[in-house]
């Protein structure tokens, strides 16, 4: 008894804390049971591979021999002597700045405008805007932007008399990034867009009715005072999807303007990782690249969720 000092009063011992925790775990048995089916598959096929891949960035790993620990040298090489990586950072930033915010705004704007229409038209328009992200149509875009006169864009411009000879859309360094951005925007009304559409459908009708009684007069007012405040979770979901989509894009460029693209003009960080991972089999180096990308995306995600939660409350 004499040992009770002022600072120990009110503090639980570690043992007590553990017992409390255990009791609370037992009390919530049902929660864990309902989580279990998902978590089992999630741990085996996502968590374990991710954890296994984390240390790879610090190794030299060519898939044939066992990984060799080399400390931070992958990271120092990346920033100090890999000129193409530095270039790919710039390309990724330009690419993400164009595709990310634009397609995020488009997702929301279109989801909202569609919501203003008759129910039958809603389905049709939602399908029209979502269809590109379902389709696998690199071949058709290659034909559209084809560098000879058979390309649709070229033949259209030649017929109008705007150009005299075909433009090499897919190989001219001045155009490759622009073309990639257009195609990426075209397919980017995907998961985020559909989630926002679902969010609109889930807003309770009584909210609109209450709004009308309280003097809301226009669509804009309704959007700002009723819709946006009750769409926080969907806006967050769409934001995460846009971050992932715009920062990890690489397949579009690879399929469209070739790999590597002219002068590395459409060479994103993810393309760089692909280059080292699947072409040169330097998995350690590729992991380091992906790790840097992850850190950037995570920071951005934190930032956006802060901004959104501030706005929603």
């Amino acid at each position: 008894m004499a040992q009770i000092s002022a600072e120990n009063i009110g503090k639980r011992t570690k043992q007590e804390e553990r017992r409390m925790m255990w009791r609370s775990v037992k009390a919530n048995k049902a929660c864990y049971l309902m989580l279990a089916p998902f978590m089992i598959f999630f741990i085996i096929f996502t968590v374990v591979p991710v954890v296994m891949s984390l240390p790879m960035g610090f190794t030299d790993f060519n898939m044939a021999q066992a990984p060799k620990f080399i400390g931070l040298s992958n990271y120092t090489t990346l920033f100090l002597s890999d000129k193409i990586f530095v270039k790919s950072i710039r390309v990724t930033i330009v690419f993400a700045l164009f595709t990310g915010p634009i397609s995020y705004i488009l997702c929301f704007l279109l989801a909202w405008l569609i919501n203003e229409l008759h129910p039958k038209l809603k389905t049709v328009f939602t399908l029209i805007f979502y269809a590109p992200s379902m389709a696998n149509v690199y071949t058709v875009w290659q034909l559209i932007f084809s560098g000879d006169m058979n390309g649709y864009v070229n033949s259209f411009l030649i017929n109008l008399g705007l150009i005299n000879s075909p433009v090499q859309w897919l190989t001219d360094g001045n155009y490759v990034l622009g073309v990639t951005i257009v195609v990426q925007l075209w397919i980017s009304l995907g998961a985020g867009f559909l989630a926002l559409r679902a969010g609109f459908q889930n807003i309770d009708r009584s909210m609109y009715e209450a709004g009308a009684i309280e003097g809301i007069k226009t669509r804009w007012q309704e959007l700002i005072y009723i819709v946006i405040p009750s769409m926080g979770p969907q806006l967050m979901f769409a934001a995460v999807m846009q971050i992932v989509g715009s920062f990890t894009a690489g397949t579009v460029a690879q399929n469209l303007v070739g790999f590597p693209s002219t002068d590395y003009k459409a060479h994103t960080i993810m393309t760089h990782a692909f280059d080292y991972g699947w072409v040169r089999y330097e998995m350690g180096y590729a992991s380091a690249i992906c790790m840097i990308l992850f850190v950037v995306m995570y920071a951005l995600n934190k930032l956006i969720s802060k901004v959104l939660s501030k706005y929603m409350d």
Partner: peptide
């Protein structure tokens, strides 16, 4: 539901969404 580990699991889900590494496929 509030239970021990909830926040942690929620955090992991977001990390899993954002972590795109081409090494994962090999590990998988």
């Amino acid at each position: 539901c509030r239970f021990p580990g909830n926040k942690f699991i929620n955090g992991i889900i977001v990390v899993a969404l954002l972590y795109q590494s081409n090494v994962i496929y090999i590990m998988q």
